[in-house]
Write a protein that binds this DNA or RNA. Structure first.
Lengths: 348, 348
DNA sequence: TCGCACCGATGAATCCTTTCAGTGGGAGCA
DNA sequence: TGCTCCCACTGAAAGGATTCATCGGTGCGA
């Protein structure tokens, strides 16, 4: 009769391995970390013991003294295709390193700082975060403790590295394209701005969507047209509803520039539902998610190479872990991919 | 002059809080964990001290003695929409608990056991994994140490809980639907089976895709038709290429049943590219990912409610953490959603 | 008034790994 | 032969939080 029906067997520790191999704990630790000062004989002994005992180092214990060999990713939306590309790029870049990635997803209505904190609590060796709206002063405090790379922030910091697309160029390309097609009623659909406007939201610190919107306004005004900006939630379904509203109006737009592809997909859905297509309304998105190039979708969009963004984020973080202390910035090129949704004019 | 230019300030510890509040470490610990035996006065003192020092408990240190309050998710593909739904459901279910989720994504060509191990190394309190092809004996060993819920495994275990959709019913509905439409040349496109066939791959332990394929064969044979099964990689682009091949053949299929929606999207892409549509080739997928219901896509698919799957996975795990020891199974209902891609016959 | 029970709080032990200051022995050199 | 230097290896301390005995103090019943 066992007193504890669910007794969980204790996994073997570095102590067990040391005993089994007849050496000290420190020696085992050295072998594991490939540290200096290990004879071939001892390495063989220890390796064999590790095999026999199926020993695996406890990350929590390592983290207390040394490194956790873990990089943390904070991403606001697990399902977002653009973010997925970033993660893919990062995963690939990490394959050849001893580092493991963990992702901390955000719950609904959670802010990025919650997840960033939770990663820091786990003593990850570095953090990549995509939180355009978190207070930069707070981020700097985090970066004092843990190397930090922010994706999609146009602000400058001495403490953390930043990675962005060239949002200005991307938006310029979209507007040139649409204006070039002869459109005059171009509506811009984007996500709600932070409310209340945070004190740090200056020109320099503009988030990508805000920057894209700014370029839209500039170009519309410069062309003598009046800008029309519609704000929705990040979710595509609200973009869908908003678009239905736009299309029902008497002077409906002939083109819609969506702040990102998630919104653009929602827009396309509404256009189709209204019985219209690209001959009636041109649609352009941003991010160039994989589904955009599907022939049934054919969404024009700005490619800012999410894969590269993720890869660069990891590179910057690894550099930091190797000792770099000055902050760096990386900006990815933006390229408009024209597809059917904003096809050439009205010929079909 | 500072000797260390990048000196990282030491975050405050429970010791610091205890000193600041004038109590013992253990008392602080109790306050944090809402444990029994804390006076209101002491709680107030400690809470104030925590605020002042911006104290956050180190998860690594907690994990060494107690719990890490972390649940780990192993998912094979970050970008997969079906898996995303599962994660969303789980995130939601965790909002009201003290537990945090971390996701361990798989690198290209990595097997699930790598990520599961890495989660176990991090001493998560429980693991949810989606690895249809990992040795069940190995999983049972993992489950001895860490509560484990497997999603999408039809095998039975005394050690870990399982969550599945009703793949048999789902596949039956697809076949009834397609046969009912009058199709006779129905091709099944699915992912490569494990190779070599693992010894544990019996009828009972069949993975979802294998089960769906089995039902397809049964129904074809029962209808006096000859099954045609095409295997591709998980990636949709290979499904695209394979479909182009199928469509070029003289007796091309009039219907394609894809093992999941990722493949089905690739199939639709090839169909469109070949200048065909649903009048020529009916397509049905599996999982009912969000994009399937987009009017431009209109993919018929089997809904097995990923959100619910994720929510149930968390529920089962939390039950385990509260002491349940016997293994449970949960099976989600499968419902075919018919859309344009397999619309009613050939009227358009 | 005495004794008991119990509440609230505490010190010390514990979890597992890394790191640092040694220790002892062997090789090389004069 | 004697000295120094180097190298492989070891013991012990450190790191932060939890938990277990333990202890002082208070309230209550007899």
């Amino acid at each position: 009769m066992s007193t504890e029906p669910t007794r969980r067997p204790r996994p073997s520790t570095i102590q067990d391995v040391a005993r089994e191999a007849g050496v000290s704990r420190a020696a085992v630790s050295k072998v594991i970390r490939n540290a200096y000062g290990v004879s071939d004989h001892m390495r063989a002994q220890v390796t064999a013991a590790i095999e026999r005992l199926e020993y695996r180092p406890r990350v929590a214990a390592r983290a207390m003294r040394g490194a956790s060999f873990t990089l943390g990713f904070e991403i606001p939306q697990v399902g977002n295709d653009f973010l997925t590309m970033i993660v893919d790029g990062a995963t690939e870049a990490l394959m050849s390193t001893p580092y493991q990635m963990i992702i901390a997803p955000l719950g609904r209505d959670q802010k990025g700082d919650v997840a960033i904190n939770s990663l820091a609590d786990r003593q990850v060796d570095g953090i990549v975060a995509i939180s355009p709206r978190v207070d930069p002063a707070w981020l700097e405090r985090v970066a004092e403790r843990t190397p930090l790379v922010m994706i999609g922030r146009h602000d400058r910091s001495d403490r953390y590295d930043t990675i962005t697309g060239d949002d200005r160029s991307g938006a310029e390309q979209v507007m040139s394209h649409l204006l070039g097609l002869g459109h005059r009623r171009i509506t811009h659909l984007t996500i709600h701005p932070s409310r209340p406007e945070p004190p740090w939201a200056g020109q320099a610190g503009a988030e990508p969507h805000v920057l894209r919107t700014a370029v839209y306004r500039e170009r519309m005004t410069a062309a003598g047209l009046s800008p029309q900006v519609v704000h929705t939630l990040f979710d595509g379904s609200e973009a869908h509803a908003a678009t239905l509203g736009l299309l029902a109006s008497p002077d409906r737009p002939t083109a819609i520039f969506a702040g990102n592809d998630t919104l653009a997909i929602g827009v396309l859905s509404a256009v189709a539902e209204a019985g219209l297509d690209a001959r009636d309304v041109s649609v352009v998105g941003y991010d160039d998610v994989p589904i955009a190039r599907h022939p049934l979708v054919g969404l024009s969009s700005v490619d800012q190479s999410g894969i590269t963004l993720g890869r660069e984020a990891v590179r910057l973080l690894l550099e930091r872990l190797e000792g770099r202390t000055e902050a760096l910035r990386y900006e990815a090129e933006a390229v408009l991919r024209v597809r059917r949704s904003s096809g050439v004019g009205r010929e079909g």
